[in-house]
């Protein structure tokens, strides 16, 4: 029974990793750079939600879309103002830049008196509710996570498959030069992709907040979402979610079955094994660039 409980906890945690990993993958596919700011975007999303609900007193169901929209706009702006000008520079500079933006974000939140320095609780309507399924008692906050993740994945799938802008994003990622020739506004799409990545991260933050406390360091979870993206193949959206859930479950079971300490390194052990066995990741196809 405990074992199952751990698996369910692992799935919920893994979905959070998966959502942040979706951000990594989106940005990697669009601009072939790795953004390490995803964890901080999640933290910012959680904090923004907190401020809207507790400080401004906006009802939860209004605060969620407001947070989402604000974070998407923020992601778009970050790309336009900071990332876009240095695209084309060595990948290392861009990685350092995203890390830097992350530090600035964390520092800025910590400067907010009281709110930024103490642990905060996000009041959500489904707090303290639970469902009993055959002897198992599962907290509502852990059930909501996989449900929202699944819905979000479905929405992303439909968008990339059937909308003009979604197909154009795929096209730009497959051949940027051809996309320019077709008159697809590649730069604006890159900004939109960042906006989407920030939006998904903000949702992850709002989902994670009821499970853990909100604090300015919660963004470090991004460092565990990166392995999730790698396990999934770095360029595959379903891979990111599957990788996230895999790492979440293994981590949770490692904490339950193995001695203290294994839990924290479990994600990285999984990545190491993955890179040895299947360097392209679970869903990574063979490299198909040909001349």
């Amino acid at each position: 029974m405990h074992f199952l409980q751990q698996v369910i906890n692992g799935i919920a945690q893994g979905c959070i990793y998966g959502l942040i990993a979706i951000g990594f993958v989106l940005i990697y596919k669009a601009t072939e750079t790795v953004s390490f700011v995803q964890g901080e975007l999640m933290m910012l999303g959680a904090f923004l939600g907190l401020v809207l609900i507790t400080v401004l007193g906006i009802p939860y169901w209004l605060a969620v879309p407001a947070t989402l929209l604000a974070m998407m706009a923020f992601g778009f702006l970050v790309e336009r103002v900071a990332i876009s000008p240095i695209l084309g520079e060595p990948a290392f500079s861009i990685v350092m830049l995203t890390l830097g933006i992350g530090y600035v974000a964390r520092g800025a939140v910590m400067m907010i008196p009281e709110l930024g320095t103490e642990l905060q609780v996000l009041p959500v309507p489904y707090r303290d509710q639970s469902v009993a399924i055959g002897g198992l008692i599962i907290g509502m906050e852990r059930l909501v996570v996989p449900a929202v993740t699944a819905a979000l994945c479905l929405m992303l799938y439909l968008m990339f498959r059937f909308t003009r802008i979604g197909v154009a994003m795929q096209a730009a990622s497959q051949s940027q030069s051809a996309a320019y020739y077709m008159g697809i506004p590649v730069r604006r799409l890159n900004g939109l992709v960042w906006g989407m990545a920030a939006g998904v991260a903000a949702i992850a933050g709002l989902l994670l907040a009821p499970i853990v406390m909100i604090d300015s360091n919660m963004g470090f979870i991004g460092l565990k979402a990166f392995p999730a993206a790698v396990v999934g193949g770095m360029a595959s959206l379903p891979g990111a979610v599957v990788g996230g859930v895999t790492i979440g479950v293994i981590e949770s079971l490692a904490g339950y079955l193995l001695p203290e300490g294994f839990k924290d390194v479990a994600a990285y052990v999984v990545v190491l094994i993955m890179l040895m066995v299947r360097p392209n990741g679970l869903f990574g196809g063979e490299v198909r660039k040909k001349v």
Binding site: R164, A168, A179, M182
Partner: peptide, 16 residues
């Protein structure tokens, strides 16, 4: 051409 897009989607991108 866009290698992973279908022929149809390739053509629709031409009409972007």
């Amino acid at each position: 051409v866009f290698p992973l897009l279908s022929v149809r989607d390739n053509l629709l991108m031409g009409a972007y």
